[in-house]
Computed example of a mutant assay.
Amino acid sequence: MVMDTWFDTAPGAMDGERRRLMNLAYRLLGSLAEAEDAVQETYTRWYAMSPRRREAVESPAAWLTTVAGRICLDVLGSARVRREAYVGAWIPDPLPDRTEWFGGRPVGGGAEAADPADQVTLDESVDMAFLVVLESMTPAERVAFVLHDVFRYSFAEIAGIVDRTPAACRQLASSARRRIGAGAEGVRPRAVPSAGQAGLVRRFKEAWEAKDIRALVGLLDPDAALTADGGGLVSTVLRPVTGGERIAQYLIHIADKAPGLKLLERSVNGRPGLVAQHTGVTVTVAAFALADDRITHIWAVRNPEKLRPWTEAQEWQK
């Protein structure tokens, strides 16, 4: 069987590879739009080759991974420059849980398969705290770490992507692990039972709805931080709000400014989170880091461009 014919015509082969690449690209870039563009560019380069050259590729899947990895490496380098000019804090795109948002979609028309958020598998490697720490890494560290520790590629395979020796790639991954161990911006990814997470987020939601500042302070770590991302498109704090008491006061201020704000418990990046809607429109998606029965960090994404998967989900639910 000709390898190229198998890859181009086998049922589900293309979708399977696209999903795998989308999972890789989102973890490398933290942006659904950038990940989708990277995957699209990967396929563009594949089909730009002549049939003879595609037939000569021993492993199309490996070829796609190498090209996608190199594209993401380039995007990460330029993204660091773009994010320096970003208005306020930059937070990775929040992901909805497909079982909540997409399960009711009608079959057919390709809408579900076309949605990039629906192609990302939710696990601990897309936890918001984890993605935030990845943002502290150099592009080469991030690519080496994600490919090796998350997707289990060998350092020999990674070497061809980042243009380093396998030994250098091993060092990059080791350096990345030290960043994970130390955390970044006071964030240390920690395993917390999901039932406990959900209960804590629910109590937080109820205290916020009741404008109970004492209860909010009790649920927040004294050194907690709140980071918001409006992208310069909507109003929000441009710097992190630090300290449990200050965060509680800020949240009460928001509730007073936006009467009728509706809070919904939703899965955000595979963890219990909150979605805030105003007049039926999703305006904020909040992810949480929790430790020792306290909230240690809140990431509030308000940039409308990052909320498209959530607003589109609302349309399907109507």
Rank of each mutant, 00 (worst) to 15 (best):
D8E: 15
P11I: 09
P11A: 12
E17T: 14
R18Y: 10
R20P: 12
N23P: 09
L28H: 03
L29C: 07
L29F: 06
A33C: 12
E34C: 15
E41P: 00
T42Q: 03
Y47G: 04
M49P: 01
E58R: 15
A61M: 13
T66S: 10
V67D: 07
R82A: 15
R83G: 11
R98W: 05
R98Y: 01
E100A: 07
W101F: 14
G103Q: 15
A111S: 13
D118Y: 06
D118E: 12
S125T: 15
D127C: 09
M128Q: 08
F130L: 11
V132A: 06
L134M: 11
S136H: 09
M137E: 10
H148A: 14
R152N: 13
I158T: 03
G160M: 10
G160W: 03
V162T: 00
P166Y: 02
A168T: 06
A168H: 05
L172Q: 03
A173T: 00
A176E: 04
E185H: 11
R190M: 14
Q197D: 12
L200D: 03
R202C: 09
R203W: 09
F204A: 00
E206H: 09
A207F: 02
A207H: 01
A215S: 11
A215F: 09
L216I: 08
V217D: 11
L226S: 01
G231D: 00
L233D: 10
S235P: 05
L238S: 13
R239F: 13
V241R: 02
R246G: 08
L261S: 04
L263Q: 02
G270M: 05
G280M: 14
A291K: 07
A300D: 01
L307F: 08
R308P: 04
W310Q: 00
W310D: 02
